[in-house]
Design a protein around this nucleic acid. Structure first.
Length: 562
RNA sequence: GCCCCCAUAGUUCAAUGGAUAGAACAGGAGACUUCUAAGCUCUUGAUGUGGGUUCGAUUCCUGCUGGGGGCACCA
């Protein structure tokens, strides 16, 4: 928590006690409109009814008691229905700029999560199925959450849990055989999966063939089928690796379903009768006991389902890092109910793991403004084709930019545009992906933030050439709006992590960039004749650091020239 | 049928129970012989519907309408 906020809270609490009021649930927060001060408190309104006085009258009591008592608070005003508005003084803002500039790498960080070892599982694709843009969503949100945790002092282990065995793979393998496709070719794999899926849904003999292949693949006895599966997996993985490379994710651990499935199956068998129950030849967990629904863990052929494999996954994580404290899984929100059941089962099996956190973070369903996608119908926009499209758009811009490395900039801008579109809204809510907007690079966008950063770099360079050095000795009396936003960065980071919401960082950075651009349009920064120029340079530098660190959290690069 | 999620401007998104619901895009108007125009300034325009709780409701509870998802051998 920010020190300033805490200081104000403590001061108010003391007055609450002096006035003989106990237990008041007041909040100190930033007013939405900076015209209402830097911090505001609702204590008077909360207390008013209890004491039987007008809120503004009580607010006045607080104001008198607090006036001049809090360091860095310049003035306190009463406004609206009875808000106490706190205005911070010039020294405070100057001090925060010094803080940001004195250790740029640390600016915004905290160590709230220092003792946490977080296993963060995300991306986790179905190999053998084409990666569509929905798969990117999990990766982008998961990566940002990982960084948010790291920025808060936690140790994070990024886990990829691809599905390399099971019905989906069986459909693909069947499809390759049928179409005589080459499992070395990603395009063939996509077609094969579609073919297999159609056949499976047709519900005839072919469905049985596929189910058989599934069983045989689990047992591993058929050379030919094994070969197709292995090559197909390698092909998909290679493609996934390339994509993660561009997006900036490096996994620490990779658990394959095939490696954990028998572990999971054994665990289910061992707990059948206790946690699980036989039913119609399958082994199920009866979620109704705890207000959930029943799910199958072992199917009637004795094969582990997704649920049993996830149990194996859990055990494998436990083995890899016995000291983990949080296990977070990022997936699409259609799996919401599923994870409730899974976690419930895990809690029952591993009674000694109660103090460890299990968390599922659902991401939104992604649709295009141009219509729905379906991997079955084949009208998928793959992650790559979208990235390629955005990159083409970015290239023309990059060619006219001031960079020496057009290729690098093209990539960085394209990734920024994509990530911004996905991270700008709260996780969990469905995303309508507007391709036009992602391609435009105008207004609220990743490139807008990058451009602002590059612009500051350019100005700072100019100042250096003019031999104007940063200095905070001479400051304008009234703080600029941008200063009143800047110091909030560490608080934003804390809030974003606490609510698992990277979009709060996006929103803050966008506002900050907008405010800086207005500042830039009004005020000249690199100026030998302006006595405040050295201070403006220090300020610009702090904004640059904030943008850079904030973008890092989002997994977006901050180029210095654009 | 049961359960979960969602509904804010023409569009895409914001708003720990707080002050005049905030941006961007699209539409309209404008400034600049000044550090990057991927920029800046001004402007038109919104809480699905009926109740309730509260000093105060976009936010919490509830009825309705409309959309999405899940509910036994897929992941």
């Amino acid at each position: 928590m920010s020190r300033m906020k805490e200081v104000i809270e403590v001061a108010i609490s003391e007055v609450v006690q002096e006035l003989g009021l106990d237990q008041v649930d007041f909040v100190v927060e930033h007013p939405v409109d900076l015209a209402h001060g830097d911090y505001a408190c609702n204590v008077a309104m909360v207390v008013a009814k209890r004491v039987g006085k007008a809120p503004r009258e009580i607010a006045e009591q607080f104001r008198v008691a607090l006036e001049g008592q809090i360091e860095y608070v310049d003035k306190i005003e009463i406004a609206g229905p009875g808000f106490l508005n706190f205005y911070l003084g010039r020294d405070f803002f100057t001090m925060e700029i010094v803080r940001a500039n004195s250790s740029a790498k640390e600016w915004g960080r905290n160590d709230n999560e220092k003792s946490e070892l977080v296993m963060l599982e995300y991306t986790s694709p179905n190999l053998f199925k084409p990666l569509h843009i929905g798969n990117l969503v999990g990766n982008i949100i998961g990566e940002s959450l990982s960084r948010l945790f790291e920025f808060s002092g936690a140790t994070v282990k990024r886990v990829n849990y691809p599905s390399d065995i099971g019905l989906t793979v069986a459909k693909g393998v069947w499809g390759i055989k049928k179409s005589k496709g080459d499992p070395d070719q990603i395009e063939d794999l996509g077609k094969a999966y579609m073919l297999g899926n159609e056949a499976y849904e047709a519900d005839g003999e072919e469905k049985e063939e596929i189910e058989n292949i599934n069983k045989v693949l689990y047992e591993g006895g058929d050379e030919e089928l094994n070969r197709i599966r292995k090559i197909g997996i390698a092909t998909s993985l290679k493609r996934l690796g390339e994509l993660c490379d561009i997006l900036g994710t490096k996994f620490d651990l990779e658990f394959f379903e095939s490696d954990v499935s028998s572990l999971g199956a054994e665990l289910v068998k061992k707990n059948t009768g206790k946690v699980f129950k036989e039913s119609d030849g399958a082994v199920v967990y009866e979620g109704e006991r705890v207000g959930l629904h029943t799910r199958v863990f072992l199917n009637s052929k004795g094969l582990p389902t997704y649920e049993a494999k996830d149990l194996g996954n859990f055990v494998t994580k436990q083995k890899a890092y016995p000291d983990w404290t949080k296990s977070i899984i990022v997936t699409g929100n259609e799996q919401r109910e599923y994870f409730k059941v899974l976690f419930s089962a895990i809690r029952e099996i591993f009674t000694d793991s109660q103090e460890k956190d299990l968390e599922h973070i659902p991401t939104g369903f992604l649709t295009l403004t141009t219509g729905k996608m379906s991997s079955r119908k084949g009208n998928v926009l793959t992650g790559e084709s979208l990235l390629t499209e955005i990159q083409e758009e970015a290239r023309t811009k990059a060619e006219n930019a001031r960079t020496d490395n057009v290729q690098e900039l093209t990539k960085e801008v394209a990734v920024a545009a994509l990530k911004y579109q996905i991270l700008r809204q709260g996780p969990g809510s469905n995303i309508v992906f507007d391709k036009e907007k992602a391609l435009s690079f105008e207004g609220d966008s990743g490139p807008y933030l990058q451009y602002t950063h590059a612009r500051i770099c350019s100005v700072l360079e100019k100042a250096k050439d003019m031999e104007v050095e940063e200095n905070i000795e001479k400051t304008p009396e009234t703080p600029y709006q941008i200063e009143r936003m800047l110091y909030q960065f560490p608080e934003v980071i804390e809030e974003a992590l606490a609510s698992r919401a990277p979009h709060k960082v996006v929103g803050y950075l966008t506002e900050l960039a907008g405010e800086f651009n207005s500042f830039y349009a009004k005020e000249k920064i690199a100026d030998t004749t302006d006595e405040y120029a050295p201070y403006k340079i220090a300020l610009a530098k702090a904004v640059k650091t904030t943008l850079k660190n904030g973008l890092w959290v989002l997994g977006i690069k901050a180029p210095e020239r654009m």
